[in-house]
């Protein structure tokens, strides 16, 4: 199948190095401490953060840092064919773990001992790149909850199809079977916290693809920063003296 037309356009009309449209909104869940909706094109994810709060099971309490828990779920209606999903399937357990580890790396857990932070992410619409969208949504929700973090984490994916590196794959491109590289970075520290690929790629091509994904992450970071700044200013202005 042809994923890049001779004119250099992808199936959904983007250029190979073009991202989908981003949209973010804070405060989607009123009862949560922090929450956000994050959209990358047709992929739509909602995240809610509760905490830091008292640890629910005393046995898990840590004396020197906060306990972080994460739960990833996909709504039944999120994909093209509606199906019931069992709660603890392998895919969602794995993604929960990935999100927990990436967020744990940036949250300053040592400031909140004897407490726990819960992160819930749910996919409302799945169109490829749910993993990166979830991480971006979780970052926004954590920042909204006022939880101290050493840096934002942003994530983006890139692939390699028809001998072209493609940024931010959608569902059709994702299911084509080519390599799919998901990268998560700390933009200020300029460090990689997440790197996943389930295929093989030659070294030089891999470097190109990863470079492309990193650029995507930085673009996401700029957008997230803008959204947070606007929200902070709005809250402060409203509050008054």
């Amino acid at each position: 199948m042809e994923f890049v037309s001779p004119e250099g356009l992808r199936l959904d009309g983007r250029r190979p190095m073009e991202m989908r449209q981003l949209r973010a909104e804070l405060g989607a869940v009123s009862r949560a401490d922090g929450s956000a909706i994050f959209e990358m094109g047709n992929t739509k994810v909602i995240a809610a953060v509760y905490g830091p709060r008292e640890v629910q099971h005393r046995g898990q309490q840590l004396n020197d840092k906060a306990l972080i828990r994460c739960e990833y779920t996909m709504a039944n209606f999120s994909t093209g064919d509606r199906m019931r999903r069992p709660k603890g399937d392998r895919r969602s357990t794995e993604i929960s773990l990935v999100i927990r580890q990436t967020m744990e790396a940036c949250i300053m857990t040592h400031l909140m001992p004897h407490s726990q932070i819960d992160i819930f992410v749910q996919v409302l619409q799945a169109d490829g790149g749910t993993r990166s969208a979830c991480i971006n949504a979780a970052t926004l929700a954590l920042a909204d909850a006022g939880i101290p973090m050493c840096d934002l984490v942003t994530s983006c994916s890139a692939g390699y199809l028809n001998t072209t590196p493609l940024l931010d794959l959608n569902y059709v491109e994702d299911s084509a079977g080519g390599p799919d590289v998901t990268v998560g970075i700390l933009p200020k520290l300029d460090k990689v916290t997440l790197l996943q690929m389930d295929a093989k790629l030659p070294m030089d091509i891999f470097e190109n693809v990863m470079q492309l994904a990193t650029e995507g992450c930085k673009a996401v970071a700029n957008y997230i920063r803008e959204v947070l700044m606007e929200n902070t200013k709005q809250l402060e202005n409203r509050r008054g003296v």
């Binding site: 909850a145 006022g146 050493c150 200020k188």
Partner: peptide
């Protein structure tokens, strides 16, 4: 927090300065 000789914010909020002390007052937080 300190990062490469710079003072960096770890939360969203408003900078407050009292003499030498610099801190960030969070808005939405516990």
């Amino acid at each position: 927090t300190e990062l490469e000789g710079e003072v960096v914010a770890t939360v969203c909020g408003v900078i407050e300065r009292v003499n030498k002390l610099v801190y960030v007052r969070t808005l939405r937080a516990r």
